[in-house]
Each structure stands twice: as C-alpha cells, then as structure tokens.
Write a protein that binds this DNA or RNA. Structure first.
Lengths: 202, 202
DNA sequence: ACCTGAACACCGTTCAAGT
DNA sequence: ACCTGAACACCGTTCAAGT
C-alpha cells in the first residue's frame, strides 16, 4: 500500500490526523494515546514531534479537520433556494445527524479537550467553525430581508439557532435526553419553535 | 481544625467529594489527580479506595454533588407564582449564571468525562438531574394549562427549553460565542423566541 | 478505617544516536 | 524526515504490612 520505502511514507502529518480522527470516532478521545496512534500509522513514537509541538497541538489539528467534515455534512445548496425554512430544516437535520453519527468526534470538537486560550484572540479561533457560523448568519439575514424573521441582531438570532442545535445534539449524544421513537417530533418542534418565535409579528 | 487523631478524621468520603469539587472548579477536571486530591485532603493515596471503587466512581459522586448545587442555584419559589414567563426567566438566568460562574464544574457535569452506560438504564441516570428536569416539565405543563403555551407534548417542550439553555451555556463557556457586552440581549432574545415560538396560536 | 511504602503498567515527552 | 532505544516525571491502581 505504501508508495516508497518502509521508513519514509508519503505524508505522515495527514496520516496522523486522519488516523486520529478514525480512532477518536471509534473509541473517544480519552482513549487516544500517541503510542497507539503512531503504532497504528506505522511510525515511531517520536516521529509525531516532527509535525506537532505536543499532543494538544495534534488534537487542535484533528478538531480542525473535524470541523471541515461537519461543514461538508451540513453544506446544502442553500444559495439557490428561496425557501429559508427549508434551508434551516436541512441544515439543522444534517447538523444533528452529524452529531448523532459521530458522537465522539462531536464531543472532541466542542468538549474543551484542549485548553484553548480564547481570552486574547477575542474571536472564534477555529477558522472552519467561523466560516460555518457566518453562513448561518447570512441565512438569518436573508430570512429577515424576506420578511420571515423580525428585524433584529442577526448575529444574536444565529447564535440562538446554533444554541438550540448544539444543545439538542449534546443532550442527545450524552444520553441526558432519552429519545428514541420520536426524535423527528423533537426536531420538528425545535425548528417550529424557533421559526415561530422569530417570526415577524404583525 | 481536626477533631481527633491525625489518622482518622471525621468523614473522609464527603471531604474527598467536597475538595474535588473545589479543585475541579479551580482548574478543571483534567488536572484533578487522585494524588493531589488525597494530599489536599490530608489522606493517604490508597485511602480513596476505601470509599470509591475507582476514580470514575469518585467523579460520578462529584457530579452528583454538582447537580445538587445546580438544583439549589436554580430553585426559585416558582410554586407560588402564577407568572410562568417570569419563572422561566428566573430559571434560565440562574441556569446560565451557574454555568458561567462554574464553567469547569458545568463541563464536568455534562462533559461525558466518565463513560456512563445509559444504554441499559434507558432513563436519566443521575437522580438530581432527573428531579430538576421534572420540575421544568411541571412548569411547562402549567404554562399549557394556563393557555400560555400551545398544547403539545410537555416533555418535548421542556427538552427544547433545556436544549436552548444548555446550548447557550456551552457555547458561552467554551468561547465559541464571544458575547461580552450584550449577554442580556442574547438571553432575552432566546427567552422571547421560545415563549413566542410555543405560544398558543389563535 | 485508615496509614506507609513499594510496586505495576501506562502515559506524554525528550534525547542521543543512527539512516 | 524519519528511525531505534532508553530515559524521565507523572498517572491510576494494587498490595503487603502496620495501627
């Protein structure tokens, strides 16, 4: 499978990230050790420090890769459609579906596994995360322009939508809420609550 | 300070839980080691296993204690009042305030630090957590009875309210949402969105 | 119902020496 | 740009022996 010698295989950095993603998905980040990771990837234990300063740095890269996967999962062609409600529905369903299908990954992304210093930057650190959020803000703005939502701070409205999806995802994957049969009902109600709650009142 | 001999001090089990709570609050659960904990409490390293099967068992007890603290924080005398909106507001504010004031504790409570098996029990494991949730369900039911909320599955409605508060808390304490000046606006909008979204339509 | 002290397997990380 | 192999400090956990 390897392209060249036993020593130097093509792209160790990407292999580490990709394999770590698989291992976290399977068993959670708590069981991810550098020893297992390097063994799985076929590298030596110290090779990892050629590409990453520490385990935390590696995890940050894995988180970044995970946000790219999430972005791909929820990216539906919302640009063409004029039906914002349907766009919100699709995005929300894909978002929660991603969390349910990848609970360990989702926990790693938001679970504060790495002590990230956000005090200084004063902005969302992860670029992929920021991009996804700004897409949501744009959609909210469009909903305002079309008269679906009342005119208000679009960032706050987007934050609230995100909070609902994030909260639902977390409660579901962590087993705080036991919903098996009527997951669709729960999601529908959450969506309609938000849509109705933000509707233009006249 | 100690009541009797240097060896046997009154209640080691409670001391461990209480001290662990303080240590987690200060530096997060990742930095909580049994060695530090027993040293802080003045016990030997192996003494911990007289009261807890493992570190995970200890953490579960600490989480339980944390839920009791949360329950005390959000418990407002909602029984007397007939103003459900005000009750929701008080509960929500206290809930988020607890999370913001105790981010490390809150993360421990919901952060899946201990791999809890919920598949078998099929119900919320933590008793304190269940109690708080059922209080919320009762309040939602009351709001339905009084005609504030539309008639629907009260459990789902309560879940959605909890999701919003939980999502907001997580995004805030983990720095995904940088809100400093207009935190009140964010909370007000989240509350009004839910109240309006669940209102009886007629 | 604790204590001391030693031991174990397992971590992340570093380093000297090779290719 | 990797490798091997050894080492370090730090974990959770166990155990034999005391009081």
């Amino acid at each position: 499978m390897k392209n060249d010698s036993t020593y130097h295989h093509g792209n160790l950095k990407d292999s580490l990230i990709e394999t770590a993603l698989i291992m976290v998905k399977k068993n959670g980040i708590k069981s991810l050790t550098l020893r297992d990771l390097t063994k799985e990837v076929g590298a030596s234990r110290s090779a990892i420090y050629r590409h990453f300063e520490s385990k935390d740095t590696l995890i940050k890269a894995v988180i970044k890769a995970a946000f790219e996967k999430l972005d791909n999962s929820i990216s539906v062609d919302i640009a063409e459609s004029d039906d914002e409600i349907n766009s919100f529905r699709k995005i929300g369903i894909n978002y929660i579906k991603f969390a349910i299908d990848n609970p360990n990954i989702y926990r790693m992304m938001f679970g504060h596994e790495v002590g990230i210093q956000r005090e200084e930057s004063c902005d969302i650190e992860n670029e992929e995360e920021a991009i996804g959020f700004h897409k949501l803000i744009a959609l909210v703005q469009k909903a305002q322009d079309n008269g679906l939502f009342k005119e208000d701070n679009a960032i706050l409205q987007a934050t609230i939508i995100w909070s609902m999806m994030h909260g639902l995802s977390n409660l579901l994957i962590d087993g705080h809420v036991i919903i098996k049969d009527n997951l669709d009902d729960l999601f529908d109600l959450s969506l309609s609550t938000i849509i109705n709650g933000m509707k233009k009142t006249n």
